[in-house]
Design a binder for these strands. Structure first.
Length: 469
RNA sequence: GCUCCUAUCGUCUAGAGGCCUAGGACGGAGCCCUCUCACGGCUUUAACCCCGGUUCGAAUCCGGGUAGGAGCGCCA
């Protein structure tokens, strides 16, 4: 059986981390079965939907490399004719009916039911029944259209993640499928779209579980076979609270700014709620080959930054440097570094990746390779720039200047030989050099650092430091 | 209030009745390595929400609590 999944965000904000994971699961499941992963924009709420949000979502998806298989995403606002057609069909078939109850009337009904400790629901006052006398439609009122929900039996949902969930039909009231102005509502559009798009697996947040039985009933009323459902639990903040704008509810592009590699974020996300034995790291191919719903947890998971950083570090260390280059360059440029004036980014990445968990950190720690020093770290200078050390730097500078070739090996021999000749541990000389050329006491191995920095910059900075005494 | 969902180390999880004196990973602690910061290696820390039941045997099955969460719109 071919598999078709979809990701259907409503464009009211950026692509957040929970949405990204839902999209990832949908993507992986479709790819696993050589199926289709479709994109749909649920923009029927014209008040809240914006083009900026649509763009932000696409930007996030593109950065993560989660591409839809449809040429152009489907927009619900472009399908109104189709929805009207289906509503007309249902009205004609008697599976939907007009309701003239006013909002005030409905509000009063809800208030009364709440007061009686009942679940608020439509009481069916305009629902046609055999032998029932309907009220006279009030003049000048545009009716809404309601779905005529079956009242007998139960709806059984075999959720791929949560297992079997049963709903009693009489718990379900007659929901509105078209507003008084004729525009269709969410639960209805979803059903028609999924049916028309041939969606076989609906993968979405578990806040939709309670909508599912109604959607199944509409599908049945339309004579369609309901798809399989997988309701993914939500992602919580590290404090266990729901992610809100105030804390943690960041767009995926924020994670880029923080210094994550897209494939690392994906890897962290796929392991949040899903597992494959003890395996922590997966290439995209492995994710596709191994992803399944049997091992997706039904309970919500907290987002743990520490673990996410660990995963990011694993990627930085193991991935081919060429895939890191574009992101690294983006971060360097973001802090105003001109990457044309310095060593190759690949070489810098190879030296720095062991000691950086994020690209922000890597950019900060590599700035000195490309830009002039803006002073020395005060504590480091105070500790390592004593008169004796500065005299050593001046002396070493002379030896380096005379070096016939500027290679890591030659520099290694020169610096180590110098320390040995002076009867000093390497640390005694390497640390002052670091502060002099890097501005701080932390850098890759000293030979590699000097090599990457280059002869001109190294000699100039040693001279500047020695002369600062 | 009603309906629905969830519950193993601090966190993510393995676990589909005996393989569990509960495994892995992140984090924490310690040791080793070491020119700084790191990497790496080793050791260690810490959990089956509670109460009943089924069974020779339960983290695993059932029931009831408790605690979290979601939904109950002419929002999506």
């Amino acid at each position: 059986m071919s598999v078709t999944t979809r990701f259907a965000p409503s464009p009211t904000g950026f692509l957040h981390i929970g949405g990204a994971r839902t999209a990832l699961f949908s993507y992986l499941y479709a790819k696993r079965f050589n199926g289709q992963f479709l994109l749909r924009i649920e923009d029927t709420d014209r008040e809240r939907s914006t083009q900026e949000a649509v763009d932000a979502i696409f930007e996030g998806m593109a950065w993560l490399g989660l591409h839809g298989d449809n040429k152009a995403p489907i927009y619900q606002t472009q399908r109104f004719d189709r929805y009207k057609e289906v509503i007309a069909q249902m009205l004609a078939a008697g599976t939907a009916y007009h309701c003239y109850a006013s909002k005030e009337e409905l509000d009063a009904l809800r208030a009364e039911q709440m007061a009686n400790k009942q679940k608020p629901r439509y009481d069916g006052r305009w629902r046609p029944e055999a032998g029932k006398l309907l009220p006279t439609p009030p003049a000048g009122v545009n009716p809404v259209v309601r779905f005529r929900n079956p009242t007998e039996g139960e709806v059984v949902l075999n959720d791929l993640i949560k297992g079997t969930i049963t709903f009693a039909s009489d718990e379900l009231d007659d929901l509105i499928i078209a507003r008084a102005d004729g525009t269709p509502t969410y639960n209805f559009c979803v059903v028609v779209d999924d049916m028309d798009m041939g969606v076989t697996h609906v993968i979405r947040g578990d806040d939709h579980v309670n909508n599912t039985p109604r959607q199944i009933n509409i599908l049945r009323a339309l004579g369609a076979t309901p798809p399989a459902y997988a309701h993914v639990s939500m992602i919580l903040g590290s404090d266990g609270a729901k992610l809100s704008k105030r804390h943690g509810a960041l767009g995926v592009m924020e994670y880029r700014s923080m210094g994550f590699l897209p494939e690392a974020l994906l890897n962290y996300l796929v392991r949040l709620g899903w597992s494959h034995g003890d395996q922590e790291l997966f290439t995209r191919e492995e994710m596709i080959a191994k992803f399944d719903f049997d091992h997706v947890s039904a309970s919500p998971a907290r987002f743990d930054m520490e673990k996410a950083w660990w995963v990011n570090h694993q990627y930085l260390k193991s991935v081919d440097p060429s895939v890191v280059v574009p992101e690294f360059q983006w971060h360097l440029e973001k802090i105003g570094v001109d990457v044309s004036q310095g060593p190759s980014l690949t070489a810098v990445i190879e030296q720095q990746r062991e000691r950086c968990r994020s690209l922000v950190e890597m950019a900060e720690k590599s700035k000195f390779f490309f830009a002039e020093l803006d002073g020395y770290n005060e504590k480091d200078a105070a500790k390592h720039f004593n008169p004796a050390a500065l005299a050593l730097l001046a002396e070493l500078r002379g030896q380096l200047e005379a070096l016939p070739e500027w290679t890591t090996e030659a520099l290694h021999a020169a610096v180590n030989g110098f320390a040995e000749a002076k009867g000093l541990g390497l640390g005694k000389i390497a640390q002052p050099i670091r502060v002099a050329v890097c501005g701080m006491a932390v850098s890759p191995p000293i030979d590699a650092t000097l090599f990457l920095l280059g002869r001109t910059r190294t000699l100039a900075r040693l001279a500047a430091a020695a002369g600062s005494a």
